[in-house]
Design a protein around this nucleic acid. Sequence first.
DNA 1: TTATATAATGCAAATAAGTGCACCATGGGT
DNA 2: ACCCATGGTGCACTTATTTGCATTATATAA
Lengths: 139, 139
Amino acid sequence: MQQQSRAKPLRYSRQRERLLYLLQSTDTHPTAGWLYDMLKPEFPNLSLGTVYRNLSVLIEQGLVKKIDSGSTFDRYEAKTTPHYHLICHECGTIIDFEEQLFPEIDALVSKAADFAVEGHRIDFFGTCSACRTRNGKNS
Amino acid sequence: MQQQSRAKPLRYSRQRERLLYLLQSTDTHPTAGWLYDMLKPEFPNLSLGTVYRNLSVLIEQGLVKKIDSGSTFDRYEAKTTPHYHLICHECGTIIDFEEQLFPEIDALVSKAADFAVEGHRIDFFGTCSACRTRNGKNS
DNA sequence: TTATATAATGCAAATAAGTGCACCATGGGT
DNA sequence: ACCCATGGTGCACTTATTTGCATTATATAA
C-alpha cells in the first residue's frame, strides 16, 4: 500500500511548517482547497500538489489526520488528542466529540483478531441539532 | 450536503441488481473499477458513472457501505450485519471483525452530545499477521 | 563558504469519483 | 397492448486527488 519505511529523512520546508500551523490554528476541519487558498497569499506560486503532498507527510508523522466525511471532498485536522467525529449528513458539519469511550479498545481487538492494531477511528453519522431545529425537530 | 428525501421512488434496473448481487457474492471489499470490470462482459456498454451512481443508491438504501481504506481508491461491501474493519496499512487488506463491541454506543453518544446519531463506523489501523510474518515479526 | 546529495516544489498530466444531459427503459394507468 | 411520466444509462465533462519530472532548496561534509 504505502511506506513502512520509518527511516525516511525529512527536510525543513516553510510551506509545510505554515500548513501545519494553519491547521493547528483552526477547529473547522478544513479542506485541501481551503488550506491552499489561505496559504496562497504567502506563497504566490504554491501548488495544490504541494498541499496534498505535505498533508500526506504530516499524516505519516501523526501530526494530521484525514477525515472522510462522506462528502465529495476530504477534510483535515491537526488535533492530536484522541477524539471522535459526529458527522451531520444533512449540512456536512463535523463536530468533535472529546469524551474517551474505551481506552482499551485497541488492545482488545489486537488480541481478539490476529492483527497488530496501532490506532482506530470512530465516526458517528446523524443529524446535528441545528439541522434538527431547522427541520422542525422531526427529522 | 445531500438528500434527506426518503421518498424517492426507485425503479428496477438490471445493472443495479447485478451490481448488488456481485457485491453480495464476495467478501473481498471490491473497488468500483473491479465491479465495473466484472460487469462489463454482461453489459458491454456499461459506464463507470453508472457503477458509481448505483453504488450511491445502494448506499442510501443501506444495502451497501463505502469503505475508506486510506488508499487511493474506495472500497465497497454489501455486508449488512454490524462489523468493523481491520485495515492493514502495509498491504491494504481489509479484514472484517465480526464481534459486536458496544451495542449501546449510538444511544450513549446521542445523549452526551446534542446530536441524533443514526449509525457509526469503526476502523482499526495496523499490521496484519501476513505482513508481520513477512517482516520477521518485528514491525 | 562551497560543493554535493537528495528532499521539496511547481507545473502538467494522470487517476478516481461525481455530474449534466439527451436518450432509453420501467411501471402504472387506459 | 399502448401511452406517458420519470427514473436509469451512456457518454462526455468536471472536480478532487495523486504522480512524474525538471528545477529549487535544505542540510551535511569538505
